[in-house]
Design a protein around this nucleic acid. Sequence first.
RNA 1: GGCACCGUAGCUCAGCGGUAGAGCAGGGGAAUCAUAAUCCCUUGGUCGGGGGUUCAAAUCCCUCCGGUGCUACCA
Length: 513
Amino acid sequence: MPSFYVTTPIYYVNGEPHLGHAYTTIAADVVARFQRLDGYDVRFLTGTDEHGQKVQQSATAAGITPIEFTDQVAAKFRAMADAVGATYDDFIRTTEPRHTEALKKFWTLLADKGALYSGAYKGWYSVRDEAFYGEDELTLRDDGSRVAPSGNPVEWVEEPSWFFKLSEYGDRLLAHYDAHPEFIQPQSRRNEVVSFVKQGLKDLSVSRTTFDWGIKVPNDEGHVVYVWLDALFNYVSALGWPPEEGGLYDKYWPADLHLVGKEIVRFHAIYWPAFLMAAGMPLPKRVFGHGWWTVEGQKMSKSLGNAIEPLALVETYGLDQLRYALLREVPFGNDGDFSKQSVVHRINSDLANGLGNLAQRVLSLVAKNCDGKVPVPGELTDADQLLLNAADTIVPQARTAMGDLAFGKLLEGVWSVIGQADQYIDHQAPWALRKTDPARMATVLAVLVQTLRPIAIVLQAFMPGSMARLLDQLGVPSDRRDFAHAGPKHAVPPGTSLPAPHGLFPRIELEKA
RNA sequence: GGCACCGUAGCUCAGCGGUAGAGCAGGGGAAUCAUAAUCCCUUGGUCGGGGGUUCAAAUCCCUCCGGUGCUACCA
């Protein structure tokens, strides 16, 4: 069985989970479920990034130890992943021994390969901005002092640091991007990364001495490892590393897909492959940087207090509805706006009025007029065949769209078949055939039942709960719900008794959202 | 400032050399199996402005205007 390894970033625990985190996790989960349905042996990893100065400060501010603090927040991220229905196989925390021990070995490997050296980090630092600035970014005042673009004072700081020889990897990275155009997606992010690397790379400071909440550098314990080196390695440490014979690493590395927000593409597309090159390890196959959500047209921010809690969204809209709306509304990779109005509209028109209504009208006609059994089809007309053919293209087209992580396009394709089915049922009018030609009515309903099946099978990746219910109502056995069983050969046999139909997606009133 | 991308119907976007498209919204009609959901018909754009290449340009080139992203570190 071919394997497929997909990851979310490990989320930084210096804040509560919000819509952005939920979005990445949901997208990764849809990929994971889809690949499983398509016969892959999937590994889906998520987790939390728990080291660094900000976490240490937040813990201090809360009056607890860093590990107490991260225990609390990590639990919230795990609860978020569960709440959005994520079927992760593993949840890694960078404070776990399996990670810290592996990372120390990785550091030692990098050192042995000559990729690290000891030096001093120097620069103009603004305590208030918590940031270093380049000479050219500063303004020289009349009194000889320098200030940052923010207007805050800066001071010259020198501290001992370990460096990674990032500068040696520019050409190799560019060659890799060139040989593997799909390595960074979407295209716009790829362009940015390429131009960044072309500007020339400086060596990267990979240790810190000014705080101690981190993984100690082997043989130099006054340093802790730079959080990005620490964090990125989770993708490997979670597989068990150094590898054991027949272990997870052998099976799943290199990763097929690192799903990340656009703000951290650089770390995943430059630093991470450079680290791996230095260690002589294979590179992940793809890094996809998705866009950001605004809320009702405004940027999510702490100061505005408009960050949305994923749990509240699930409560308001329903889990499957939320998952659908997020992935349908905006092309993956683009930024989007999350507004009550558009989400409610999307859910009502696509789910309640579209798929839900189609399923309900078909299944209730079957229940009332076919004795609640899958109808026996007669000879097929051109119109019947046309719809069945369309249904048959759903899985292959979905597979193509998923290859590009084009969730929106994938769903659009499925909905175009739903639209065709709506046209078909109106033109055929089985409710009229009931009296004039019952055999023809049975054929029409049989065609519709067969059309709904692949629709439900593919959509399981997006809306697992409701599609399981739909497949129950369609009489599809639970071991026949993968893509291998989506074709017409595996249609539910005529005469199979079906359960009483129930509505799938209630309409949502805007005022209640 | 440099580099990249974008500007197409009221809205969100597709098309990227061969007589302007989709979804939603708006208008009119049909049907009543269905969560008043559905179906049919329809209004609507000099494809940001200007110039050029071409038999032919949203589609290629130049330029201007407007917008967005990136331009490295203590996440």
